[in-house]
């Protein structure tokens, strides 16, 4: 009886012996790319080049326009930025804005935390959260500024009020979505250790919902930062108290347009720093490391 394998024709030694002689040299599988090609594959390099091109375009166009009151040149904006940074005028305003931002942002986080804690522990809390976020999330924070001025007058209190409003609803919405999305298995594991109340929330729910919480924190930051600048700007709410918005408002009144542009530049730089360094680092150290990225 023949083994079944004999009926299957396999490329055996008989076949390979046909093409005898020197084995053909294999083509080289890897070839080093030229230095410029390798450089161009790095995304930050490409972006830096693009940024330089935009700056040159700005410079050339502003030179052609030749009207400092409409569009100052790139170089004069940069010198104005450096000058106002060095004499402390811009840095003081930035510092004031960031201070308010920190206060309002922390308050927003605390309130959102309390609200969502209430929402996951009681049914009436759930209804309250859903009702409030459903209504107030649609209300632009800046629309509340006139009312805030009526209640709190000119000054920081009004700005903080509208900023907390801008943080609390989107953040609550995201935290709550994260909490409800925690898998039943993980909940049972936590309950099995006898965890309940705050222990359960902080040891199980918060880390398990962290991807959503981080999204909420990012959205909350973006909303509050925009609201802050807008609130400082509209009616000059901070009224001499300082802030980047106030700086821009003032420079427009004094027709120092290069300084106005340098204020805008500061807003962009701070935004980039917070989003690409602070939040990026936080993300890499948490959800990226845990394999929980959404």
């Amino acid at each position: 009886m023949q083994a079944p394998s004999a009926q299957i024709s396999l490329p055996g030694p008989a076949e390979s012996s046909l093409n005898t002689g020197v084995p053909e040299p294999l083509p080289r599988t890897t070839k080093k790319l030229s230095a410029t090609k390798r450089l161009f594959l790095i995304s930050p390099v490409r972006k830096a080049l693009l940024l330089a091109a935009l700056a040159i375009f700005w410079q050339v166009y502003a030179e052609m326009l030749n009207n400092e009151l409409v569009l100052p040149t790139f170089t004069s904006t940069v010198t104005a930025f450096l000058r106002s940074c060095l004499d402390g005028e811009l840095t003081n305003n930035i510092f004031n804005s960031l201070k308010i931002l920190c206060v309002a942002y922390s308050m927003g986080i605390v309130f959102a935390g309390l609200l969502t804690t209430l929402a996951v522990t009681t049914r009436i809390g759930t209804d309250l959260l859903e009702l409030c976020t459903g209504m107030f999330n649609l209300l632009p924070a800046i629309a509340l500024l006139p009312l805030a001025l009526l209640w709190f007058g000119l000054g920081y209190a009004s700005i903080i009020f509208v900023m907390v409003h801008s943080v609390i609803w989107p953040l609550s919405l995201n935290i709550y979505a994260g909490f409800t999305g925690v898998s039943p298995t993980l909940r049972m594991v936590g309950r099995g250790y006898g965890l309940s109340g705050p222990g359960f929330i902080f040891k199980i729910l918060v880390p398990a919902a962290f991807p959503h919480i981080l999204t909420g924190l990012k959205i909350g930051w973006a909303f509050s930062w925009r609201t802050l600048i807008a609130a400082e700007l509209v009616f000059g709410t901070s009224s001499g108290g300082g802030g980047i918005g106030w700086f821009i408002f003032e420079k427009k009144n004094q027709l120092e347009i290069a300084e106005l542009f340098s204020g805008l530049m500061a807003i962009i730089i701070i935004g980039v720093l917070v989003e690409n360094f602070f939040f990026k680092t936080l993300e890499n150290r948490t959800i990226q490391k845990w394999g929980m990225k959404l």
């Binding site: 298995t185 993980l186 049972m188 594991v189 309950r191 099995g192």
Partner: peptide, 20 residues
């Protein structure tokens, strides 16, 4: 009457470990 540490549980789901 309630969950407790005197009963340990192993689930079918792979997400029972704390991913963080």
């Amino acid at each position: 009457t309630r969950p407790g540490t005197d009963r340990g549980m192993v689930f079918q789901e792979f997400d029972q470990l704390l991913p963080w």
